[in-house]
Design a protein around this nucleic acid. Structure first.
Lengths: 204, 204
DNA sequence: AAAGTAGTTGACTATTTAGTTAAGTAGAAT
DNA sequence: ATTCTACTTAACTAAATAGTCAACTACTTT
């Protein structure tokens, strides 16, 4: 079996961080290697290209985050409460990033997706798939909320696309403006967008 | 006065197109020069760097588009009608891009803004400024709509930020998915988000 | 027509970057 | 213990890229 190593994981962590704090295009393989403390020969032992390592890393990050989202969007939680918790969770994550890197970083799926979608087909497709998974959480929360009579939403899929666009816009704006406060509007915006009857109280 | 030239303008057009169809990071000075039919020496005669030409080009593009937006958001047009026209205008622009380049391109301010905001301070600041101008159109339309009793919006600025995030998200998603149909939801989404009373009829 | 100015050119340097390779090393399996 | 395999390394090539410069050209002004 030969010797074992966590170099592959270190490379994936490095590329995630570099892409998130900077951009895909400005991240070089040399940078990735340096940050991971790995020589370039080893990089090419594990990966074919920058697109390859980025794709693999995004997929791995998603698998890690998936559990958290499953918990946040648990069917045992009242549907509107799920959305509220998701907004608060996102705020917390972004706060941490701002504290650690001095900058609000938004969602890497959106920034990288928008950056590479006209050029890196495989990476773009991977991102598209993950984003679609994330939208599903919203869709089922919305459907449950409608079933509970909390909102009017005959087309939950359409509403979820709308809400998803709003979230994406918020995250990107927070990144561009480097301003956490923008994310403070998320809960209110969600409820407005869904036409929740009693806008002040949280959920039912 | 020496000889005159439109090389500077050609360079600005080239960088705009390359950044929009691809990305800021993947665009090189050599590419910009080739597309403009200008030698690199001339490039550096007019500009200091890629960031410089990009900043100048975005500013120029904005000045061109400004007039169109002024007309769309004319105070003589009923406020909700302004928003509807803006959505339809955006759809038309994106259709053209898709026809010309084979890809929905979204809004360069958002994609480039998100890409460079952690690295290129000056370019980031310029983008931020232009985005803020664009938001103002929404804010005043919302304020006018509220004054006319068409919607409930005690805080027009907050509502405009919300709507702006939604638009930005739509544009970015349309780009990532290369799907024009996403933009078809814009009018309905706008009216839902603003809580327009009669959702079917256009405006008043 | 002379002179000055705005813009052009190609050839150049230096650096960064992606990607390769052959030889070596550490740990696991037998 | 040795053999096999997974991984590492340094040194390398080739290409791409940013940026410079001195000589040149075309236009305008006087």
């Amino acid at each position: 079996m030969g010797r074992v190593s966590d170099a592959k994981e270190r490379l994936m962590e490095s590329v995630s961080e570099l892409i998130w704090t900077g951009s895909y295009g400005s991240t070089t393989i040399d940078q990735i290697c340096d940050k991971a403390g790995v020589k370039k020969g080893s990089f090419y032992y594990f990966f074919d290209s920058k697109a390859d390592v980025a794709t693999t890393a995004l997929e791995a990050d998603w698998e890690k985050r998936r559990m958290e989202l499953d918990a946040l969007f648990s069917a045992t939680v009242p549907p509107l409460e799920r959305l509220r918790r998701y907004c608060e969770f996102s705020y917390r994550v972004q706060s941490e990033m701002k504290a650690r890197y001095g900058h609000v970083l938004g969602c890497p799926l959106h920034s990288v997706g928008s950056e590479v979608c006209t050029q890196e087909d495989q990476l773009g497709a991977k991102i598209l798939g993950i984003l679609e998974y994330k939208r599903k959480y919203l869709e089922s929360a919305i459907r449950d909320a409608a079933a509970a009579g909390l909102i009017e939403a005959p087309d939950a899929a359409a509403k979820s696309r709308c809400l998803f666009a709003y979230y994406q816009g918020l995250a990107t704006q927070a990144r561009i403006q480097n301003n956490l406060e923008i994310l403070r509007d998320a809960v209110q915006g969600t409820f407005d967008l869904l036409g929740v009857r009693e806008p002040s109280s949280a959920a039912a």
